[in-house]
Design a protein around this nucleic acid. Structure first.
Length: 587
RNA sequence: GCGCCCGUAGCUCAACUGGAUAGAGCAACGGCCUUCUAAGCCGUAGGUUACAGGUUCGAGUCCUGUCGGGCGUGCCA
């Protein structure tokens, strides 16, 4: 309908150009908006305001000329010029009613579009290091990313969801060593656990798994493990040096094969936990991409560095290899290969993005925690340096979640093990409320999550309000069947003109705007537009429900109202489904 | 210091990316169940959009500066 109005305006402009009223070279980007205020009609355009300057005319006069040149349409009842020169369009009733019939025939597909035309988008999100369970910050990225992907699919894009598994690097060695030390404790050794190790209880669980599978075959006595190891922080030493020395000792005592076995016990344990957690949260992926796979069998990291080198953007300084990212606007140059010959995390990232680009996506979207924003400039610099189009890559930052219990902020740190996990949050507030709550705010807005408030069950969770509207409609439909006057769709659609109440017209108009809201939310990657819409729709429905009885004597009116109700139910369902929230039939 | 994200009602947030009188939900107050689910509805109250300039028909939105908050600024991941 919005397109129709735009077409009418476009036609009018062309007529005016032919008549010589407007210059041939005039730039006309036609904007049509749904009005906030129904006294302004159903749609409004600012076209005359935008063109007034180019046409050297005052906006209201120009608006009059445009209106005069508008072709007749069976959908438009009348037009009006208002305010500084807005053109308001009032639709006639039959075109307002039409949406109910459209929704009923399209069903689950109502609202979807082909805007994306099958373009391939890769969406990478969460990608938390597999060194511990997901916490509430990851939960926000998960809810946001999963919903964003759903929205893109709904508007015609082909989406690959991917999780980048950081299964290489020092943090993983710390994890493996932590598991081994806990395992030694289970074997009966007494030791001082390193202050920089992973202290969470889950580490002990994986140590138990290892002990159950392998007995004490990896046991070494404490003296041998800690002999000549640099002192830990509490003893006045450096905790980093202490843990690095322990890692080396662990590798030496276990040997390559056994070390890998301990390493895999920890990695698989955590990864399975993460996968299960996300699956239960309704978050699924097409690919789990291993960082280790970048180096074996083919070393893509070396190839990426070579590409940069061939392009002339690598320089050796102090024994390390530097990527000259300042040539592309970065603040400083960055090391890719360290003095000790090891690739940096950044080098892996370059290789990973090279790989993404080689897979032939039309667009690549990364959802990162806000703490990674310093990486945007350097990653884009690397892509440009390799001759790739960095514009294809969009990085969306998700700001942190601060947890509160009442007025007290909950401190979180992965290393110390004192954090709230996503699983704990899900168990406390439920998956529906968690999914919904996470995306009600723009992702670049920091979020305060008050557990006491969210766990207070009923009122404060907006999701119930919307689900309740859905359940109410189901209840009415059940009631209609019980009293032997089940919904008659044909009769209802034929009698739409009996729906004359103001709230009924508003409701239909709101239903008609759903495809536009979905399109906007998807293109802009802002799911909160959809949660706002759902609240509005539920509110408009509840208002109508309270004011006007659906199951009335008059069969025409009853079926028309039932048809409208079922259409509302369908749209509630469609939107909730995209958000990963259930639509209960009764509550 | 520099870079990024922000600053809107007492609180938590919107505002269709520059449109008409800045809107919701909590919290407060007053009404509505013999009636299809009261997890609901109706009404009242709440604002110099941090501040100062600028751009134009028109600014919460864009540009500059100031103030305030969060995050980042490793040969860590």
């Amino acid at each position: 309908m919005k397109e129709l109005v735009a077409q009418l305006l476009d036609h009018a402009i062309r007529t005016l150009i032919e008549e010589g009223v407007l210059d041939r070279g005039i730039k006309n980007t036609i904007q049509v908006e749904r009005t906030k205020d129904k006294t302004h009609g159903d749609f409004a355009s600012n076209l005359a305001l935008v063109l007034a300057k180019q046409a050297r005319s005052n906006p209201r006069e120009l608006a009059q000329k445009i209106v005069a040149a508008l072709p007749a349409s069976s959908s438009v009842k009348r037009t009006e010029i208002a305010g500084p020169g807005f053109i308001n369009f009032f639709l006639n009733e039959s075109s307002i009613h039409q949406v109910v019939s459209d929704i009923l025939s399209l069903g689950n597909d109502f609202g979807k579009s082909r805007q994306g035309a099958g373009q391939k988008i890769q969406l990478e999100f969460v990608s938390a290091n597999p060194t511990g369970p997901l916490h509430v910050g990851h939960g926000r990225g998960a809810a946001y990313g999963a919903t964003y992907a759903n929205l893109l699919e709904a508007i015609g894009y082909c989406v690959d969801r991917e999780y980048y598994v950081n299964d290489a690097g020092r943090q993983m060695d710390i994890l493996a060593t932590s598991v081994w030390l806990r395992y030694l404790e289970l074997c009966g050794e007494t030791l001082a656990f390193p202050s920089n190790g992973y202290k969470g209880d889950y580490i002990v669980d994986y140590a138990k798994t290892l002990f159950a599978a392998s007995g004490s075959q990896f046991r070494h006595d404490t003296q041998a493990v800690f002999a000549h190891i640099a002192a830990d922080e509490p003893e006045g030493g450096d905790k980093e040096q202490h843990i690095d020395a322990l890692i080396q000792r662990c590798k030496t005592l276990l040997g390559e094969h056994n070390y890998e076995l301990v390493f895999q016990t920890g990695l698989k344990g955590i990864l399975n936990d993460i996968k299960e957690d996300l699956a239960e949260f309704g978050v699924s992926y097409q690919h789990w991409f291993s960082e280790r796979s970048l180096t074996t069998p083919e070393n893509l990291v070396n190839r990426a560095v070579k590409k940069l080198e061939d392009a002339g953007y690598i320089e050796e300084r102090d024994g390390a290899l530097w990527f000259l990212s300042t040539r592309f606007g970065d603040d400083k140059d960055r090391v890719v290969i360290r003095e000790n010959g090891q690739a940096t995390y950044f080098a892996s990232d370059i290789a990973y993005h090279l790989n993404k680009f080689e897979r032939g996506y039309d667009q690549i979207i990364n959802i990162w925690g806000a703490d990674h924003h310093g990486y945007i400039a350097r990653v884009k610099a690397a892509l440009t340096a390799m001759g790739l189009d960095a514009e294809k890559l969009t990085i969306r930052l998700v700001q942190f979640v601060s947890l509160y219990r009442g007025n007290e902020q909950v401190q979180m740190s992965t290393r110390s093990g004192s954090f709230i996990t996503l699983r704990e949050l899900r168990n406390e507030v439920g998956d529906d409320a968690a999914r919904f709550f996470y995306i009600t705010r723009r992702c670049e807005q920091p979020m305060d999550f008050d557990l006491e408030l969210a766990t207070s069950q009923s009122k404060d969770n907006p999701v119930y309000y919307i689900q309740y509207a859905h359940a109410r409609i189901c209840s009415v439909a059940r009631k209609a069947a019980e009293q032997n006057t089940p919904w008659n769709r044909e009769q209802g659609l034929a009698a739409m003109s009996t729906l004359k109440e103001e709230s009924e017209i508003r409701l239909m108009s709101l239903l008609a705007s759903y495809p536009e809201v979905l399109l906007n939310a998807g293109l802009q990657g802002e799911p909160h537009l959809l949660t706002n819409y759902l609240r509005d729709l539920a509110s408009e429905f509840h208002t109508w429900y309270n004011a006007h009885k659906t199951l009335v004597e008059d069969a025409d009116l009853r079926n028309a109202r039932l048809s409208l109700s079922i259409a509302v139910k369908q749209v509630l369902y469609n939107a909730l489904h995209l958000l990963g929230v259930s639509a209960p039939e009764s509550m």
